[in-house]
């Protein structure tokens, strides 16, 4: 099994439902966004093109972050999910710099203190924050707890446009594999040979 995601750029409407669903699922502290939708504009009025590009950890098969991690905190599971063991991370940020997609986040000191409303943690934040540690690097986990229960990641579940599809890349009959074949899926920065498990289709 090789878990991966296909992002349909034709469907995505840049609504950021994924961005917020990720916040709700993971309870990440302020300024920590495991996924978000970028916009890219080209051209000159009136011939203008605007594209919405959801980004998240690509769970690369040949992940530079796994390679450069000196402690073994970042590892790749058998099913391809790349995870950071916060207890092992020393916060050297080699992975942060090595990630071509800039999809890693360093949790600064004090990040877990005040929560979003600035004074004290909300009951929701009190439930969610204990799993985080300051001074280490975090990133998207493909919602590993959900995936292990057979559910889709939260961003996939909510996406109103069904622009995110999750599945087994090693199964040629899976929806993700078929989409990649039929609609010419491509990997972000494929020239860097990191073999992302996230594909885009247009």
């Amino acid at each position: 099994m090789h878990l991966g995601m296909v992002i349909d750029l034709k469907r995505c409407v840049g609504c950021q439902a994924c961005t917020i669903a990720c916040k709700a699922e993971n309870g990440t502290p302020p300024e920590v966004l495991f996924t978000k939708v970028l916009e890219q504009v080209a051209g000159e009025y009136p011939i203008v093109k605007k594209k919405f590009i959801p980004i998240l950890c690509n769970h690369c098969d040949d992940a530079p972050c796994v390679r450069v991690c000196p402690t073994g905190a970042t590892t790749k599971r058998e099913d391809g999910i790349v995870l950071v063991d916060h207890k092992k991370c020393i916060g050297c940020r080699a992975c942060y710099v090595a990630c071509p997609y800039k999809n890693r986040i360093f949790l600064k000191r004090g990040s877990l203190k005040n929560g979003y409303f600035g004074k004290e943690l909300t009951p929701f934040e009190k439930v969610k924050y204990p799993k985080w540690q300051e001074g280490v690097v975090l990133k998207c986990t493909f919602c590993v707890e959900r995936v292990d229960q057979g559910l889709d990641p939260s961003c996939v579940q909510t996406c109103p446009a069904d622009a995110r599809i999750f599945g087994d890349l090693s199964n040629p009959e899976s929806k993700v594999s078929r989409l990649i074949r039929q609609r010419g899926g491509f990997q972000p920065l494929s020239e860097d040979n990191t073999e992302p498990s996230v594909y885009y289709i247009e």
């Binding site: 991690c69 402690t71 991370c89 020393i90 050297c92 000191r109």
Partner: peptide
């Protein structure tokens, strides 16, 4: 000074096989 978790610095020796930091 730079490390997020300096008290665990020794863990940085774990993976010289692939990591230039190690």
């Amino acid at each position: 000074l730079y490390l997020g978790r300096p008290e665990r610095f020794w863990r940085g020796l774990t993976k010289p096989g692939t990591s230039w930091v190690a």
